[in-house]
Design a binder for these strands. Structure first.
Lengths: 227, 227
DNA sequence: CAGGAAAAAATTTGATCATATTGTAAATGC
DNA sequence: GCATTTACAATATGATCAAATTTTTTCCTG
């Protein structure tokens, strides 16, 4: 569990340099995105100061940031919790993700060279293995890495930021869906995306990305209306 | 002791109920959005504790939130400042705003009744007066109110949140542009939007909104490349 | 002797914590 | 059930420590 323990040997300069509030933010972000926290679960400041071993000020700052990200919600009465998504929420996120991420994919297609695409394909191969193995946690991490890597070539930091914010919102719910249905039924349009990138076909890359998003999010929407 | 605790006096409720960090956030947000703060201007924690008369913790929390919003930027060396936009930034915001706000406008068209549209039109009439008077500050406030009011009928909180975040980003720069060129050259496709709403034409509402956004943002893009 | 660059001290600002205060929810009594 | 009390968590402040910038001093060179 000691994720923050020093990975000392490699780069000793940067290890402990970041301020505590930044580290707390990154830690919580990962926990939310990859599902250690369940939708609806309350998050308390004191609980985090105890478990993370830092004072309350850094924890407070990290929580405010995450609330602004939409990764946590303020429940009115000083309570903070992981968001529960409504059907409408998911529908809006589908629209926003398709609008923005298709564009990112399209822009990336114009900028990526052959080696970049090879690199992306290697990530996708590792992703396939997690699906075959039913490794939910690995799937969530590598799926995120795949999209993040792809979009990073778009050279569009503001669109990237909007996307990151959306991923933080649906992270916990996606985790629940994967936990319930396993990894078998998960969509993977990544092969289509890679094919499009190789032929420098921005339109096709955008379309494949849109389909990948839609299939994944629809799965989530269905699961939410069931429960 | 607390005999006066009941909220009997209805009109006066909003005074000191909200926590300090929330008030600081709202204050700074308004200052950023409507331009008391100039792009590039440094923002210091201690300066704000002095000028706002609260401790550092609430100020810190508000600043973290605003950084997450993109309304302030963290300059590496612990320094925080109001963002300077690049041409690429503006271009990305044009894309994102058109994508999302056109959709909001389209959805609002389906939900607004005649009285709602009348209300919106009254806002636009007041807006016209600020343009005629060259009242930059009034223009910025009412233009925001117009869009915010319109979009509120879309019943899409997540898309609304994404939009708010974008407005916070370009607020300071828009203010600079208006200050330099006055209000005369500002676009106003609001009449077209209202016409579209009255005929329940969602497509046309979306198109007029897109044009309104594009014209305003292009103005900003031009001004930024000049300086 | 003057000018400038480098080094060192001082000031300003940020980061963190410990503590006091206040508000909210749960528990107890009637 | 409802009101009062109790307990716990959130809010907010001030103090303390660390980092960075700015100013001052000093020393070297022309």
């Amino acid at each position: 569990m000691d994720l923050i323990k020093n990975k000392a040997s490699s780069a000793k300069v940067e290890t402990e340099k970041r301020p505590a509030h930044e580290q707390v933010y990154q830690t919580l972000k990962a926990q939310i995105m990859f599902g250690d926290l369940v939708p609806g679960q309350p998050v308390t400041i004191q609980g985090l100061t105890d478990s993370l071993g830092v004072g309350m000020t850094p924890v407070r700052e990290a929580i405010r940031r995450l609330i602004s990200d939409g990764a946590l919600v303020f429940q009115g009465n000083r309570r903070v919790s992981v968001p529960l998504l409504s059907a409408g929420d998911v529908e809006q996120m589908i629209f926003a993700r398709i609008s923005i991420e298709s564009e990112l994919s399209s822009r990336a297609a114009a900028n990526m060279n052959s080696a970049d695409i090879d690199n992306l394909e290697r990530i996708d191969q590792r992703l396939d293995r997690t699906i075959a193995d039913g490794d939910v946690s690995g799937y969530l991490h590598l799926n995120h890495t795949f999209h993040e890597t792809l979009y990073s070539y778009a050279d569009a930091p503001i669109l990237l930021d909007l996307t990151e914010r959306l991923w933080l919102r649906f992270g916990p719910s996606l985790r629940v869906v994967c936990g319930r249905f396993g990894t078998q039924s998960l969509p993977d349009r990544h092969k289509d995306i890679i094919t499009a990138l190789r032929s420098k076909d921005a339109k096709m890359a955008a379309k494949a990305t849109a389909q990948d998003i839609e299939q994944g999010m629809e799965l989530m929407a269905d699961a939410l209306t069931d429960g």
